[in-house]
Design a binder for these strands. Structure first.
Length: 116
DNA sequence: ACACTGACTTGAA
DNA sequence: TTTCAAGCCAGTG
């Protein structure tokens, strides 16, 4: 099996994020074994605009802040997408983050890493 | 080919 | 407690 680049791995995890749940760049990076590559995760999201299966709006920073909303169309698209999934967002800050947070390290089987 | 930037996070001062 | 710096990988000038 050909080794996947960081981007592809990020996408593979991102598309697993359940409806109405969110995760963080760092959580994905850490799951991929590169905890310090959180920036790359965000960068991958930027490139994911070509991919329909990548719910970039479900990926926020660790504080639950919609730091990437500025990269979406319009000014509030990211928030609207989240709210349409039942995620409460106030002033770019996801509410009840501790409840809807989805940690790939916990929710996904670890062997998925080799299966990517 | 080199340097800088970028949707982040963590640790040290 | 708050502020600063480093690390990670890819893309762009």
């Amino acid at each position: 099996m050909a080794e996947m680049g960081f981007f592809d791995k990020v996408y593979a995890v991102a598309i697993q994020i359940p409806f109405g749940r969110v995760t963080s760049y760092g959580a994905i990076a850490k799951y991929l074994g590169a905890a310090k590559s959180a920036r790359m995760v965000g960068w991958a999201m930027n490139a994911s605009h070509n991919m329909e299966d990548v719910p970039a709006h479900r990926v926020v920073n660790k504080k639950g802040l919609l730091t990437g909303k500025h990269h979406f169309e319009g000014t509030n698209l990211m928030q609207q997408l989240l709210e349409s999934e039942g995620v409460e967002v106030v002033d770019n800050q996801i509410q009840q983050l501790d409840v809807i947070f989805w940690d790939p390290q916990v929710e996904l089987p670890e062997y998925l890493g080799d299966n990517l």
